[in-house]
Every structure is written in structure tokens, then in C-alpha cells.
């Protein structure tokens, strides 16, 4: 559906909620949610993410696109619906950082991609450890804006290793974009260049684990 994809991208970039919802509803037949996610939603969000990385669209457009799509997918595939991808267990967090926009966008995009994940909000290293053990989390996504918060991921990882926790860490946010070596420095398992890229990275890890 290349033409439909184009229309959806245009509707999302111009933050036209009605047009975006209409495009998806036109192709919805009551049981093809995952096909729509795979063929329409994910490619559109990935293209918008790439356009942001290239400096062609702005973060506000990425944010609004993710919200618009999340709202619609929540209608078609409500939270808790057994059709959502809930395994392996995953969560998203902001580690000792007070900037929540990045996490909000990634959360929306992953949910728009059909994933079910826990939102830990803003947490410390100790709280994160407690939560991932209690919830048996296999994949943890961490969003950061500030460099000190990004560096704290290394402490988290050391503690995870000490406790023999195998949770995979996917990290992202401004510090990782400005320093391509940083995700390795903090011993993360993967990084994503932008919010939509996190969906791609997550898909890869999920495939590996299942």
C-alpha cells in the first residue's frame, strides 16, 4: 500500500488526527489489526523517525504522530488485549532523569506497534533493579536526555551483572545520538537512533529471545 503509506505519513506529519484515523479505518476489516500495524503503522512511524534523524521533520511532529497512532491502535487493540505482544516481558523507564518526552514517544510508538509493556516512569538504579526482578522483565528500554543519567546506566548494568540478571538493556536519547560510542561505554545491549528505531531494535531482540 505505498500510496496509502504516503497519505498516512502526510496526515501524521501535518498532525491531522482525523485524516490519519480515517486512512487506517478505511483498511480495517475487524480482524486485520496486526496486518495494518505491520504494513501501515510501523513503516509510517519508521519513515517519520528517519525524517527526524535527517532534520526534515521536527520532534513535535514525531510526538504528535505517535500519540495519534497510539490512540487509534488502543481502540483497535485495547490495553490488555491478548492480541498484544506481551512476551518477552518488557518495560520502559527514565533513569534518574527529569525529562520524560523521549520515553513518552517511545512508549506510544511501541504500543502503536502492538506491544504491551510496563511504564516505570522515573526511577533510580535501586528501584529499577527491584522492579525488573519483581516483574521478571527480560527487556528494559531506558530513555535519557542528560549525560549523567545516561552514565548511570553503567551502574545499573554492573549491579545487574552482580545479581546475575540477564535483562537486555536498550538505551536511547540525546547523549547517545551525540556520542555514538556511549551505549557501549555504559554496557548496554543495544541503542536506537530515534524513537521509531527503537521499535526496529526491539523487534530484533524479541525475535532473538522467542
Amino acid at each position: 500500500m505505498p500510496r496509502t503509506n504516503e497519505h498516512l505519513i502526510t496526515a501524521l506529519i501535518s498532525m491531522n488526527r482525523t485524516a490519519a484515523h480515517d486512512i487506517i479505518r478505511q483498511h480495517y476489516n475487524g480482524k486485520n489489526t496486526f496486518l495494518l500495524i505491520e504494513q501501515l503503522v510501523v513503516p509510517a512511524l519508521e519513515t517519520i523517525g528517519d525524517l527526524w534523524t535527517e532534520g526534515i521533520v521536527a520532534l513535535s511532529q514525531v510526538y504528535m504522530s505517535s500519540r495519534i497512532i497510539e490512540e487509534l491502535i488502543d481502540e483497535l487493540l485495547p490495553p490488555g488485549d491478548p492480541g498484544r505482544i506481551g512476551q518477552p516481558k518488557m518495560a520502559i523507564a527514565v533513569l534518574e532523569d527529569y525529562h520524560l518526552l523521549g520515553k513518552r514517544i517511545v512508549w506510544s510508538i511501541l504500543r502503536a506497534g502492538g506491544y504491551e509493556l510496563l511504564d516505570y516512569g522515573r526511577v533510580t538504579v535501586a528501584e529499577t533493579l527491584e522492579k525488573i526482578v519483581a516483574d521478571k522483565i527480560e527487556i528494559l528500554l531506558i530513555s535519557t536526555l542528560m549525560l549523567p543519567s545516561a552514565l548511570r546506566i553503567k551502574d545499573l548494568k554492573s549491579e545487574m551483572e552482580r545479581q546475575n540478571l540477564k535483562t537486555r538493556l536498550i538505551v536511547g536519547g540525546a547523549p547517545f545520538r551525540f556520542d555514538e560510542m556511549l551505549w557501549r561505554d555504559v554496557n548496554a545491549d543495544a541503542t536506537a537512533n530515534n524513537a521509531a528505531d527503537s521499535l526496529k531494535v526491539l523487534n530484533g531482540i524479541v525475535e532473538e529471545l522467542t
Binding site: M15, S60, M64, H99, L100, L101
Partner: peptide, 10 residues
Amino acid sequence: GFDKYIELIV
């Protein structure tokens, strides 16, 4: 907050 501010602008 950033998210609420973007929504305010839009």
C-alpha cells in the same frame, strides 16, 4: 512539561 507544551502549541 514538554509533552503538554507541544499539545498546547498544537
